[in-house]
Simulated scan of single mutants.
Amino acid sequence: MARRKKIYEGKAKILYEGPEPGTIVQYFKDDATAFNAQKKDVIEGKGVLNNRLSEFFMSGLNGIGVPTHFIRRLNMREQLCRSCEIIPLEVIVRNVAAGSLSKRLGIEEGTPLPRPIVEYCYKDDALGDPMVSEEHIAAFGWASQQDMDDIVHLALRVNDFLSGVMLGAGIRLVDFKIEIGRVYDGDFQRLVVADEISPDSCRLWDMESGEHLDKDVFRRDLGSLTDAYTEVARRLGVMPKSSGPSKPTLIN
């Protein structure tokens, strides 16, 4: 496909104009960042893995009636998505204490939570994506109360789906973050899961060993990020289990 006008470039993806009105092309880069981009690297193959894994999760959500912006994969690094207005929030769902929650509340990492907890952060890199409450969201007009009810409903449905899929692969879904977009059909608005779902945006631990299979491998220098993401892809059937240590062939 011919390269189109760049709309936006973030830390892990580039967005281009789509081939049809109301569409965008989402390109997955090999860049890895952590600690609000204070730690950076380029990890060969990461973008390919995240493209395929995000396709797997988004297609699965579409299949069970959870609306997403994903339309189809175009090639190894690009996917076609519906254009949407992103609500400026990161929506975080936590099942197990880890990361900032453990630091904030003094809960030992790995402690199961009594129920899934939904948190919100305001999307602003310059501010470090600060945590906000529903009061902030309503006061500043980022989302209406109806939007918030719908966002919580979507987030918990995504959690149920991902938890089940991961459990079947021997992986514990510790937490994840998603973004929500508004899609307009005339005067009618609906909310969809947008951006990506990949090991970049989830904490994934092996059920038996507790091994990290997510971006914490990069954050904490725990080994090869590509190996961790490849293991997730293999377990989910996105890659053949027989792939060797050289670059595995992704299933088309």
Rank of each mutant, 00 (worst) to 15 (best):
V96L: 06
V193D: 13
K39C: 04
E109R: 01
G168K: 14
K46W: 02
I171C: 08
F188E: 14
P88W: 14
E109G: 06
A12W: 06
T111V: 06
G170A: 09
V152Y: 01
R235S: 07
F176R: 00
R94P: 07
E108A: 09
K40G: 00
A194V: 12
S242W: 15
V93S: 06
K215C: 09
K13V: 03
A2M: 10
G237L: 09
E44R: 15
G10Y: 14
S242D: 15
G170T: 14
A169M: 11
I71D: 11
H212D: 10
Q145F: 10
Y8T: 02
S144F: 10
G10I: 11
H212C: 13
K13M: 00
H153K: 15
K29L: 09
E134I: 07
S224A: 08
K123S: 03
G223D: 13
R77K: 05
C84F: 02
H212L: 12
K6G: 02
K247C: 01
A97C: 10
D41G: 12
A32W: 04
R104F: 12
S209D: 08
F176M: 00
V91I: 15
P114R: 11
D129R: 09
L162P: 02
G141L: 10
D124Q: 14
A139N: 05
G18T: 08
H153M: 04
D206M: 04
I14H: 10
P248C: 11
D125F: 13
A228S: 13
G186Q: 03
I197K: 07
L222D: 00
M148P: 02
G22S: 05
V174N: 00
M166W: 08
N95G: 15
E135N: 01
G128M: 02
K247V: 02
A194T: 14
M131F: 08
I92M: 07
E134P: 03
T23V: 00
W205S: 14
L74P: 09
L61N: 07
P114A: 09
V165F: 04
G244I: 09
G210E: 08
L162Q: 01
L61S: 11
D200L: 13
G10V: 04
Y184G: 00
M207P: 04
E196W: 08
N252D: 15
I178A: 13
R52D: 05
R4V: 05
R82N: 08
E20H: 06
G170K: 11
K215W: 05
V48M: 05
E134K: 15
D147V: 01
L105W: 14
G45A: 01
I7T: 06
